[in-house]
Design a protein around this nucleic acid. Structure first.
Lengths: 193, 193
DNA sequence: CAGGGATTTTTCCAATGGCAAGATATGGTT
DNA sequence: AACCATATCTTGCCATTGGAAAAATCCCTG
């Protein structure tokens, strides 16, 4: 089911992939819709049917990203060390998605295709530290602190800001700094059925 | 020394300020050069003389940002708690600059107006944790961890990702999470002459 | 095989970034 | 005060872009 004539048959996915590649190469705004359409071999208005406009395409990227993100986080379990590591793993594996997801001005965060997955991710992150301490207020503090650290690390890493100095292997390094910063808070090992 | 006729007299600064305002309102790419020129009351090509092109304007913003940033960090002293807090203070006080500075694809990071201040900032951050521990490798880890946390926090905060839940006062909150995460590493109080 | 919805194209428009050439102002020199 | 080199700004132009409107083509169902 390739392109056989008038109907492309697959335009939506092809455009998404082209967008992801373009984002990897030149950032979330370093390309034009017409460019992508050309590369897909269709007219410059063909994408409009699938995405509406350029913002719509970025919204679709964000939606796909948050879906996958929520899954990754959920699969990481309850330990916030693991959730933090999963956060970084996702960003490194899907840099283009990640680069869009946390820049809400690029897309429509309230779009029904985005909002649920977005909320799901936020919920997992917010509750990641639950019952670590007896004080719920401290829990939130821990959650935000962890979230901040992994988000910041990955942003800096993707942005090349950590390029000087010895090479860093993102996932392993994340584990180390989480332990460094939050290891001392850890309860005795949680039940592992 | 306002605009008196043909020569604006102050275009460079006026354009920079207009850009900063526009970035605050619609992000680093949510405006057009012509728009800013109109708001300054000059023709759409007038800015070219001062900045070359749009990227040049963003480069000037980044340069100004890193200058001010390096000063702020340097003034914070040696304690990496203070440096971290200063990091956040800067970002909150100069959100438009900050939004550009850490997105190198938006400007020309190697521009001679940017590179030195950028390097100065990086150096302060990299050595922020020096001699905290006997192990230099751990120092780097601590420095990157701290940097990541404050950078991530501020990115999330500026992006509105922390908007749900109780309101957060950035600088105070930063102090708390730095202490939470790194307080246990702290040497006995440094000499304060 | 007819109709209808889905998908894509062609055509058109306003706005943008940038270039080239010309106009105007400014300061220093004499 | 006249002059000129330079800095600053304008006008006119062009290719590219995002998007709207309308028409064309395809595919599925009955």
């Amino acid at each position: 089911m390739d392109q056989h004539g008038y109907h492309h048959g697959n335009l939506r996915r092809v455009m998404l992939d082209a967008a992801l590649r373009a984002i990897d190469e030149t950032g979330p705004t370093g390309w034009s819709l017409r460019e992508l359409a050309r590369s897909a071999g269709v007219s410059h208005t063909a994408p409009a049917h699938h995405f509406g406009d350029k913002t719509g395409l970025l919204t679709a990227v964000a939606a796909e990203g948050f879906e996958s993100f929520a899954e990754t986080l959920a699969a990481a379990g309850d330990d916030f060390h693991e959730v933090g590591t999963a956060y970084v793993r996702f960003a490194v594996a899907h840099p283009a998605h990640f680069r869009v997801m946390f820049r809400p001005e690029l897309y429509r965060p309230d779009d029904p295709a985005v909002a649920p997955a977005r909320a799901r991710s936020a919920a997992i992150l917010a509750t990641g530290a639950q019952s670590l301490s007896p004080d719920p207020a401290l829990d939130r503090k821990i959650a935000v602190a962890t979230w901040s650290m992994v988000h910041g690390f990955v942003s800096l890493w993707l942005g090349g800001a950590l390029a000087d100095g010895p090479e860093i292997e993102p996932e392993a390094f994340t584990r180390e700094i989480i332990t460094l910063a939050f290891g001392h808070l850890r309860e005795p090992p949680v039940d592992m059925p």
